[in-house]
Design a protein around this nucleic acid. Structure first.
Length: 576
DNA sequence: TGTCCTTTGAAGTCT
DNA sequence: AGACTTCAAAGGACA
């Protein structure tokens, strides 16, 4: 694990290798020929990512071409068989969520009215245009929920995007003016493995080598990053969530000694605002908005210096406990996916009537996988910045500090799961069916069905592969519904599905297991998926050998794209 | 009211 | 070292 360096040039797991993404994308944009090594997979890839291409839509970054050309992002969820809920969710995605580009709002987020709302007073007024000026950005004070739904869309496409997306003018990433991509040293470390520039650990598909002429940094070129909605939701009110505002007069750094660069300042001012210091108004920001990462304990928190080592004193247990109670709860910095979720949740909710986070999260998880590496890289970068800032703000903070703050349930659940595994006949606890997470009406599912999703009318794998131009869903999006759920309960439930599927399909589970184990990917928990879940039948017949051969374990073989079809049809519509 | 669900990733603990 | 666990966000569902 990369360690935080005093210089701030730490590598906190950010995908440094993502440096190659931009180049890759550009190359693809130019339609440049690709290495012969990919030749065999090109066709498959194109067919697999055709949906991505379709939904890519016209964007600042270019046409849909690049998306289709890029290797499928590492996805592990292929092996995750989904229950009916996931199925419905998938359909919703296919039919609704992926009808547009992943970030449909970017282009038109270049709001023309630069500065008007907040330039005057230094803060965004409620309902004010979310046009962020570069220099003003750190000082923005966005009222909570003020801009959750921005109907003033300059573009029709924006109508569907009700998520307040912060967008800099000039295609400037919100953090671009603040994050010194070129100066802020982020030595290559251990970024997400699936984002490796050389070989995708998941897919095993070699990636175009990073041209030496390119800077060893994330390809967050202004143009590229400009498409990124403000992933740091702290400045963007979402779902009525309080926005981490900054005092009108700017923001007072609680740690003068802490050298803060612009990026730090931006982060600090937003998510990790100096609320650790004696809050001016009883733990609340001067604006009255609670700090996002610091949850004041019930007991009125006292001015405690985060840097000051907590505990370590010879106090009585009671005193220590009392002191701990007073300690503000410093939340963990959000990881890339959390940032993504935070940003996209509102959009998904807006696009669909889904309200339940569980279902939405499933969608988001799939969308996350469907994101291009470049897009993911943005979030990884932001997450790394967050962690970096967090570590600087709270040097003594450790994730352990929050251990036990929440009711430990997983352990219990896991224990139950284990016992459940031993005795599969006994339902664990009050296990809730996964189906309920989707509303019965499933308004978002209709379009997909009307369009004839792959599930509704599963196309033969061969057909899908044979017609790359066909709007075939991306492998991830298609397969994810089948992906194993990492939750013990769900796994237990899915095991039933798996069993049914296995009984219905004579396909060997070995192939599926290999692909399932490939879910190695990101989620460690997925690795622990019980074999029973891996036994999901996977039709490989029509899969070109190259696709399988070139897809090492831990990858998502293009062949798995076929999973979307038959098995899914078996799983779908459980409740109907 | 509190917990669960659900997702991924980071970071912790445990073996 | 690897496996496992917890937490981060979110909000409806449920006991």
């Amino acid at each position: 694990m990369p360690q935080l360096e005093p210089t701030g040039g730490d590598d906190l797991g950010a995908p440094d290798e993502l440096i190659a993404f931009q180049d890759e994308g550009e190359e693809q944009d130019k339609g440049a020929g690709r290495g012969s090594a990919h030749g065999d997979l090109d066709e498959l890839k194109s067919s697999l990512v055709s949906e991505t291409e379709n939904r890519g839509g016209p964007g600042p970054g270019g046409g849909p071409g690049p998306e289709a050309e890029r290797p499928p992002p590492p996805r592990e969820s292929f092996q995750k068989p989904r229950d009916s809920l996931a199925e419905v969710v998938r359909r919703q995605q296919d039919g609704v969520f992926f009808k547009g580009p992943p970030y449909p709002g970017y282009p038109f987020l270049m709001l023309p009215e630069l500065g008007s709302p907040y330039l005057a007073n230094g803060a965004l007024s409620p309902g004010g245009a979310r046009t962020y000026l570069q220099m003003k950005w750190p000082l923005l004070d966005v009222p909570a929920g003020a801009t959750l739904k921005d109907s003033r869309s300059p573009s029709p496409a924006h109508l569907s995007n009700k998520v307040p997306v912060v967008q800099h003018g000039h295609h400037m990433h919100p953090l671009t003016p603040l994050i010194t991509y070129s100066n802020d040293p982020f030595p290559p470390g251990s970024p997400p493995g699936h984002l490796s520039p050389e070989i995708d650990p998941k897919t095993g598909i070699p990636r175009p080598p990073h041209p030496p002429e390119l800077p060893p940094y994330y390809p967050l070129s202004p143009g590229a990053v400009g498409q990124l909605p403000h992933p740091l939701g702290w400045l963007v009110p979402q779902q009525g969530q309080p926005v981490y505002s900054i005092p009108p007069g700017g923001f007072r750094h609680p740690y003068p000694a802490l050298a803060m660069n612009a990026s730090m300042s931006s982060l600090m001012s937003s998510r990790f605002s100096p609320h650790m210091v004696p809050p001016p108004t009883h733990g609340l920001h001067p604006s009255g908005i609670p700090h996002p990462t610091i949850v004041s304990p019930i007991v009125k928190q006292e001015p405690t210096q985060p840097s000051a080592s907590p505990g370590g004193s010879s106090k009585s247990p009671v005193a220590v406990k009392k002191e701990e109670e007073k300690k503000p709860h410093i939340k963990k910095p959000l990881n890339a996916f959390m940032l993504y979720m935070k940003e996209m949740r509102a959009k998904v909710v807006a696009e669909c009537t889904l309200k339940e986070s569980a279902a939405i999260n499933q969608i988001l998880g799939r969308r996350w996988h469907s994101l291009s590496r470049e897009e993911q890289a943005k979030y990884y970068e932001l997450a790394r910045k967050e962690r970096q800032l967090h570590s600087q703000l709270y040097p003594t903070w450790s994730a352990r500090d929050n251990y036990g703050k929440k009711k430990k349930r997983k352990r219990e659940k896991l224990a139950q799961q284990q016992s459940h595994d031993t005795d599969s006949s006994l339902p664990s606890k009050s296990k809730k069916p996964c189906v309920p997470y989707l509303p019965p009406e499933k308004p978002c599912a209709s379009p997909a069905s009307s369009h004839g999703s792959m599930l509704d009318s599963p196309a033969t794998p061969s057909a899908a592969l044979a017609s790359p131009a066909a709007p075939a869903p991306t492998h991830s999006e298609q397969a994810q519904p089948l992906s194993l759920t990492t939750k013990p309960e769900a796994r237990a439930q899915l095991a039933v599905h798996s069993t049914v599927l296995s009984s219905k399909a004579s396909s060997s589970s070995s192939s599926s297991s290999s692909s399932s184990s490939s879910s190695s990917s990101s989620s460690s928990s997925s690795l622990s998926s019980p074999p029973s879940l891996l036994s999901r039948p996977i039709p490989f017949p029509s899969v070109p050998p190259t696709a399988l051969v070139s897809s090492p374990p831990g990858s998502v073989p293009a062949a798995l794209a076929v999973l979307q079809t038959q098995p899914l049809s078996l799983v779908t519509k459980p409740a109907d």
